[in-house]
Every structure is written in structure tokens, then in C-alpha cells.
């Protein structure tokens, strides 16, 4: 069925207002888009790792979630969902439940790339029928912008501060979507917010309605941690995909497919320039750092093109 924004926006919201995420936060946009991909008649159970999203959407006695929801800890959204999905299978088998449920787990990059990595890897390898969504804002924002393995190289964070001897984070970011694809799960994809949300919506729909484990890596900007004017969220996302810093692709049963190729690939500066966390890179003496970043982006982009069978 072709994507139609109007139809999609007509669906009842499954996340309520009144949550306490920051103004302009990307995470609830990711959540809304995910949940919109559910058929309205399907029930869902949501798991969230401890994160900004969790503590802000579920502050006792107020929950923003209209579906059943459970949070247990930071590092175990994958395992917690494994249990919920296991319960569903058992209860269906025993004839105690008739309804169809879908299972969606959310984690930030801390709960996904780092502390929750083992639990997620286990859940994906066991191929539970669930979708794990990482809303990746590239640092531990909930505890105050500490670096994660999703933090881009040279980003200024509170544990990789820029100083006389430091230009920010030393290491490049981990390629989590590729790692998840390497689990040989039926569906893995990377996306972010673009235009009418078609790309993310379609990926969300595939992830939810593919039998077995699915993983979605969603770049969800954090105005506070990235230090940009909060209204510029969509501009930043566009720059991320047009510079090929954040490529959008999917891996369906092991087959890599590029989802978006910019008409004109922009220099990495276009992504970096509006963000305070990269401000130091624009000092004249740091020109070589940007050049180095550009090389890394190009290398990864070309590698991806090859995987996707695209012309380099």
C-alpha cells in the first residue's frame, strides 16, 4: 500500500501528550512514527530501557503510553521483551489469549550500543518476534551528555570534553545497524526523519510485520546534547543524510539495500556546522580534523554502496 501521510496522520495517536521530554526532542517523534506503523486493530506491548524516553514518558502516576508498557532496567530491554514475547507465545499456545500483539522495544544508544548490547544481541540471535528500536542521539543524554560508542568522532561531550590536549571524542562511532544485520535477523534498517516520514514509516511497518527479530536504528537529534536551535531538527536530519554521515538503508534477509542517495553529496561541514558539539572543529588549526572526518564518512559510504550493489 502506498504511503499516504494524510491517512497515517488520521490514525489515533498511541503516545499521549503531557510527557516530559525536552522541547524539540527527536525521541518522541521516533516513537510516534513507530507506533503509527501498527495496524490500529493490533495490540502492542512496549518495552523501554531506562533512558530519557522512559523517565519522561512514565513519571508516576502518569504514563504517556496508551499500550501496555514495561520498563525494568537500563541494560535489558532485549531480555525483558524476550520474556514478554515468550509469555505471549505460551499463553497463545495454552489457549489463554486470542488477540494479536506486537512487541516493540525502545532504547537510547546507551541502552543499545553499550550497556544493553549483550541483552539485545541475545534477543536478536534468539530471533524473538519483536522490533528493537534504537533512538540514537549519540550520547548518554539522560545522565548529562556523556560519550557513548554511538558518539561521533571529535564530538564534545561531558566525558570527552574539548581542551588544550583534546579535540573531543577520539574514536569513530560504532556501526550498530551493521552489527545487528550480522546477527542474520530477518530485518535490520537505519533511518532518520525525512520530509513526510515515508522512509521511517515504511521501515517501521516492515520491522513490525516481519516475523522474527527486527532492528531499527533511528537517528533522533538531541538539541540539548548537540547544541543546536531546537527548531532545526529536520534541517539537521537532512544534512545528516545528504552528507552521507547517516545513510539510510535496510538489510532484508541478508540483502543490503540503499534507501536514499542524495542527488548531490554534501561536505560533512554541512552536518557539523550548526551543532555546538563540533564548534571547535571550525577553528583554523582544526581544518585537518574535518578533512579526516570527511575521509571516514567517504570510506564508510563507499563501503555501504558496495554492500548495496550501488555504483561507487
Amino acid at each position: 500500500m502506498a504511503y499516504n501521510l494524510k491517512e497515517q496522520m488520521n490514525k489515533p495517536e498511541r503516545l499521549s501528550g503531557g510527557h516530559r521530554m525536552c522541547a524539540g526532542c527527536g525521541a518522541p517523534i521516533a516513537v510516534r512514527t513507530m507506533l503509527r506503523a501498527l495496524k490500529p486493530e493490533d495490540k502492542a506491548t512496549i518495552v523501554s530501557a531506562t533512558s530519557c524516553l522512559e523517565v519522561s514518558t512514565f513519571l508516576y502516576p502518569y504514563t504517556a503510553w496508551k499500550d501496555s508498557f514495561i520498563h525494568t532496567a537500563f541494560e535489558n530491554a532485549g531480555a525483558t521483551m524476550s520474556g514478554v514475547e515468550g509469555a505471549y507465545n505460551a499463553l497463545r499456545r495454552k489457549g489463554k489469549l486470542d488477540e494479536t500483539y506486537k512487541f516493540i522495544a525502545f532504547g537510547g544508544d546507551g541502552g543499545t550500543y553499550d550497556i544493553g548490547f549483550q541483552s539485545l544481541s541475545g534477543a536478536m540471535e534468539r530471533n524473538h518476534d519483536m522490533v528493537y528500536v534504537c533512538y540514537d542521539n549519540g550520547a548518554y543524554m539522560n545522565t548529562g551528555i556523556q560519550r557513548s560508542s554511538a558518539t561521533p568522532k571529535y564530538a564534545d561531550t561531558t566525558t570527552t570534553p574539548v581542551g588544550t590536549e583534546s579535540s573531543g571524542k577520539i574514536q569513530p562511532r560504532k556501526d550498530m545497524a551493521a552489527i545487528m544485520a550480522a546477527h542474520n535477523i530477518p530485518y535490520a534498517a537505519q533511518t532518520t526523519f525525512m520530509g513526510n516520514m515515508k522512509d521511517m514509516h515504511e521501515k517501521a511497518e516492515k520491522a513490525i510485520y516481519t516475523k522474527g527479530a527486527a532492528y531499527l536504528n533511528v537517528m533522533a537529534p538531541c538539541p540539548r546534547g548537540w547544541r543546536y536551535d531546537e527548531s532545526k531538527l529536520m534541517e539537521i536530519c537532512k544534512a545528516a543524510v545528504d552528507t552521507c554521515y547517516w545513510p539510510c538503508f535496510e538489510v532484508i534477509n541478508g540483502e543490503w539495500k540503499l534507501s536514499y542517495r542524495p542527488k548531490e553529496k554534501l561536505p560533512i561541514e554541512e552536518f557539523l556546522k550548526s551543532q555546538g558539539r563540533f564548534k571547535h572543529l571550525f577553528k583554523p588549526e582544526n581544518k585537518h580534523l574535518i578533512e579526516e572526518m570527511q575521509k571516514e564518512v567517504d570510506r564508510r559510504w563507499n563501503e555501504l554502496l558496495k554492500k548495496c550493489g550501488e555504483e561507487v
Binding site: 531480555a79 525483558t80 524476550s82 520474556g83 509469555a87 541475545g122
Partner: peptide, 18 residues
Amino acid sequence: ESEHSAMSAAIGAQAAGA
């Protein structure tokens, strides 16, 4: 894949009514 996950999954399952 670990006992931490065993207890996490147990919590998820029991909360789901199992």
C-alpha cells in the same frame, strides 16, 4: 545469554501474565 537476562525475561514474562 546471561542470568541478568534470565531474570529480566522472567520479569517481562510474569508481568505479561505468565
